[in-house]
């Protein structure tokens, strides 16, 4: 009775002991041309993209028998909580650690294409430089301005609903999926454009997170000011891809609307009070 939903993730029963081909977009460094290399990887039960990349690192030989260098990629926890191993798999952005081969390539000879995220400069192969994402957290003052780290008693009390709401927003691991999938967020190689090019969903949502905290809202005005200019909240095109690709299912579109409301009120307040 329960069997129907036993292996619900897989449309097809994966074939054991099969070989899957990885087609990987490679690039030796910034400014270097890109190329695709393909590798055959024997699949064991429970394989994910990371374990396959580890196999390729130990056996860097392409399908044509060409000896090549191990593929470079970024990874950390492998539990989908650090956000490091984000890449574009079969055209769509996601974490590679939680990408199971049994799901993506259940048949002998299936091909999985790995590409670096396209919205960030490539460092090498699948590793991209997401520094811009972290700098945008600076732009929105994504912190609670406490006096210091010395013991001054507890923080502001809050209801379980407030706490749960902030928790949900606070699970953002800065992976960049929402930025990669956003048609309004563009790759900017030149750091001087970062400030005026659309900031994307993740930092907008972080601004909301800290505006919701009792002490954090002291910087609300500064955050909203930063988000009212070019590259801020107004550059959102409401395609709403962000919320669909977010691995943590953060309600990013709600955050965007909430920041929209905040800047609306902020601008009227400023207009009529001069503050």
């Amino acid at each position: 009775m329960a069997h129907a939903s036993t292996i619900k993730n897989f449309k097809n029963t994966p074939k054991p002991d099969r070989t899957v081909q990885f087609r990987i977009k490679r690039c030796d460094g910034p400014g270097q041309p890109s190329r695709y290399e393909s590798f055959n990887v024997p699949i064991e039960s429970g394989s994910n993209v990371i374990s396959c990349l580890q196999y390729i690192a130990a056996n860097p030989i392409t399908v044509t028998g060409q000896k090549t260098t191990p593929v470079v990629w970024d990874a950390g926890c492998l539990e989908e909580i650090c956000g490091a191993c984000t890449m574009v798999i079969n055209g769509k952005v996601r974490q590679s650690c939680s990408c199971l081969i049994d799901e993506y390539a259940p048949h002998e000879g299936d091909v999985i294409t790995l590409e670096p995220m396209s919205k960030f400069p490539v460092v090498r192969d699948l590793w991209v430089d997401r520094q811009r994402l972290f700098e945008s957290l600076e732009k929105v003052s994504a912190w609670v301005p406490i006096d210091g780290s010395y013991d001054l008693g507890p923080g502001p009390q809050e209801t379980p609903q407030q706490s749960e709401m902030r928790y949900t927003l606070s699970t953002c691991m800065s992976c960049g999926c929402c930025l990669e999938a956003c048609p309004q967020y563009q790759k900017e190689d030149d750091a001087s454009s970062w400030d005026t090019s659309f900031i994307g969903a993740a930092p907008l949502s972080q601004a909301r997170l800290f505006n919701e905290h009792g002490t954090g809202r002291q910087l609300k005005g500064a955050r909203l000011d930063a988000l009212m200019g070019p590259g801020g909240i107004n550059d959102c095109g409401n395609a709403q891809n962000c919320v669909k690709v977010c691995p943590k299912e953060i309600p990013l579109t709600e955050s965007i609307a909430a920041v929209g409301r905040a800047v609306t009120i902020h601008s009227f307040t400023r207009f009529f009070t001069g503050k």
């Binding site: 055209g91 048609p183 550059d235 395609a239 709403q240 690709v245």
Partner: peptide, 21 residues
């Protein structure tokens, strides 16, 4: 403003993305 966007419905064919495009 529209020129600042690069539609990507091919990769992300969600209804909302079509709406945007």
């Amino acid at each position: 403003y529209a020129f600042s966007g690069r539609p990507n419905v091919r990769e992300y064919p969600y209804p909302d993305n079509w709406r945007y495009t």
